[in-house]
Computed example of a mutant assay.
Amino acid sequence: MVFAHDTQHSLVDAARLVNTAEVHPDSLASVAELDALVDEFGLTGSRTHSDEELQAVRSLRLVLKEAWSAPEDRAVAMVNKILADAGAIPQLIKHDQWDYHLHATSPAAPLDVRIAVEVAMALVDVIREKQLDRLRTCAADDCSAVLVDLSKNRSKLFCDTGNCANRTHVAAYRARKSAAAS
């Protein structure tokens, strides 16, 4: 395992959140879609189920996408700002099916703040372990989705939003066949 379970979970969820803006149509366009995403992520704490909450989470996607490709010093500055703005106070928590993990906001904090701080805490581990290269953008030419490479050999190149790997491999195969036929 590269990172603690809560770090891996937060990173994968962050990539999934960012990628809701990468599919067409946007898959985070309504409060109902946000509710479904929050349920899938298993996020706890208060919710307003409002358009304001939806817009705050949608806005967070841009910040998280920037963190995905930021150099270390920029990523550190972003993490520190998120944690400072939230007044984050990390605490070990055990709830639901999860063993001990870190929460750094109260359950009453706004949803976008809780998500941002969870991702920032995960990025703390990524930065400290010098593993920022595991946060990538899809290798497909026509895709800008993000991914987290948790493989042992650091070989994950394509996102999970569509068929990017298959599409790229088929195109390469056809190009080879075409070149061989010429």
Rank of each mutant, 00 (worst) to 15 (best):
E33D: 07
A145E: 07
V76H: 02
H169I: 01
I82A: 14
H103N: 10
D51K: 12
S178H: 15
I115Y: 04
D99F: 12
A75T: 11
S10V: 00
E53W: 01
V126Q: 01
L60C: 03
A86K: 07
A84Y: 07
R47V: 06
A15I: 04
S10Y: 04
F158V: 07
A77R: 13
L37T: 01
L92R: 14
K152Q: 07
W68Q: 04
N166T: 13
S59I: 00
D133M: 10
D85K: 13
S182Q: 13
H9P: 00
E52F: 10
S182Y: 08
E40W: 11
I89H: 11
S151K: 13
A181S: 13
L147F: 09
N80C: 02
K156H: 02
I127P: 07
M78W: 13
R74Y: 00
V117Q: 11
V12I: 15
S106W: 00
A4Q: 09
A84E: 12
A171M: 06
H169F: 05
R47M: 05
A122Q: 08
A104P: 00
F158P: 00
N153R: 14
S46M: 09
L123Q: 05
F3M: 05
G162Q: 07
E52I: 04
I115R: 00
T161Y: 03
A181W: 07
E53L: 02
K65P: 00
L62M: 05
N163R: 15
Y100M: 03
D35L: 01
R128A: 13
T137A: 10
H9R: 14
L102C: 06
D73P: 03
R47L: 08
A70S: 15
L11G: 05
V63M: 11
T44S: 14
L17T: 02
T137R: 15
G162M: 08
D96E: 15
A21I: 02
H24D: 12
N166H: 12
S46D: 10
L111E: 01
A140C: 03
L83M: 10
T105Q: 04
P25G: 07
S59D: 15
V76L: 11
F3T: 03
K94N: 06
H9L: 14
D26C: 12
T105H: 08
V113I: 11
S59M: 05
V31C: 04
A36K: 13
H103R: 14
V148C: 09
T105C: 09
L37K: 05
A171C: 02
L147P: 01
A122T: 02
Q91M: 14
L135F: 09
S151W: 10
V170H: 02
H5Y: 11
V2N: 04
G162K: 08
S46R: 05
D51S: 14
D142A: 14
S46W: 08
A4P: 02
A75M: 13
D133G: 14
R47S: 03
A179K: 07
L111N: 04
A36S: 14
V38C: 09
Q91D: 09
D39E: 13
H9N: 01
D6K: 01
D51L: 15
